[in-house]
């Protein structure tokens, strides 16, 4: 232990190896855990990649029976799907419905979010509950009674009925997404507008809407993606002329029978591309990590 050349102060050496040992053990555990997580992620993504690839391969396959890859390639299934399922009109109907839902949800939701973010009033908790509840119960729960009411009003099976049904989760969603964006805006700006005599409407048009631009964009894109994907409510209320792409796709699979699976796969690919494009646009404008709460960006030194 002790060497002759260093007879100086006896430093307490014993605890050091223990701490170092624990640190090494900890670092080792960290590495194992981190490797495990990467493994899980990789497995998840690998399988999803394979699932997408399987559908993509099948949609371009001439004939594919139990081999690694199909016999030959063709794009005919896309043409067939387009004609067979009247995809042109389905896509148009989807666009109309989704567009209307996004617009109406914004018109109803943004002012409501503003009031909820800025004011305290009796009954506010009740309203919050009213706006949260539709997101907390399964769509089928209120979809079935709603469908019965809409059938009585002769609205079910029409486009208006589908739009109304889709608005039920969309309006609360806009409120939920918009509230933090509104809270970010300095109240003094509004007060200044008030001092200069702006009415509420003028204040909205010239002050709030421009400032809320990113928030409104985020909310509308998220509602858009959600509405394209929302199956249950459209399924319960749509008629033959008011089906959106998801529902048409479901019927194509469910009532498959004579149809070649490849044309269903082609249609599923079209659906994926449509949603993916919008989703990627949304991800460009909305940082998903900033959706729920705002973060102060700290300089990362670690």
């Amino acid at each position: 232990m002790s060497t002759v050349s260093q007879p100086v102060v006896p430093t307490p050496r014993k605890p050091i190896p223990r701490i170092a040992g624990r640190a090494i053990e900890r670092a080792w555990l960290d590495r194992v855990w981190s490797g495990f997580l990467w493994g899980v992620m990789l497995l998840f993504l690998l399988n999803i990649g394979a699932i997408i690839a399987a559908v993509a391969t099948s949609s371009f396959a001439r004939r594919w029976l139990g081999t690694w890859l199909p016999d030959g390639w063709t794009t005919n299934w896309y043409l067939a799907a387009w004609k067979e399922f009247q995809l042109g009109s389905v896509l148009w109907v989807t666009t109309e419905i989704v567009g209307a839902v996004v617009l109406i949800a914004l018109v109803l939701g943004v002012p409501a979010a503003y009031t909820l973010a800025r004011r305290d009033f009796p009954g506010k908790r009740f309203l919050m509950l009213l706006f949260l509840l539709p997101l907390m119960v399964p769509p089928i729960t209120y979809g079935i009674p709603l469908a019965t009411v809409l059938y009585k009003l002769r609205l079910a099976g029409t486009m208006n009925g589908v739009i109304l049904a889709n608005l039920i989760p969309a309006v609360p969603f806009v409120i939920l997404v918009m509230t933090p964006f509104i809270e970010q805006i300095d109240r003094n700006i509004e007060s200044a507008a008030r001092v200069f005599g702006a009415s509420t409407l003028q204040m909205f048009r010239h002050v709030l809407v421009p400032l809320l631009g990113p928030g409104i964009l985020a909310a509308s894109l998220l509602v858009l993606v959600r509405t394209i994907a929302l199956f249950e409510l459209t399924f319960l209320t749509a008629g033959p002329d008011s089906q959106t792409l998801v529902v048409a796709l479901y019927y194509a699979v469910f009532a498959a029978g004579v149809r070649a699976p490849q044309s269903v796969d082609a249609m599923a690919m079209i659906y994926m591309v449509v949603t993916l494009v919008w989703l990627l646009i949304a991800m460009r404008f909305v940082d998903p990590t900033q959706l729920v709460s705002r973060v102060k960006e700290h300089p990362q030194r670690a």
Binding site: I48, I51, A229, Y250
Partner: peptide, 14 residues
């Protein structure tokens, strides 16, 4: 996040 865009039918078919 990409799997959000897949849709039930594509996942099922895949």
């Amino acid at each position: 996040v990409v799997p959000v865009s897949l849709g039930t039918v594509l996942i099922a078919e895949g």
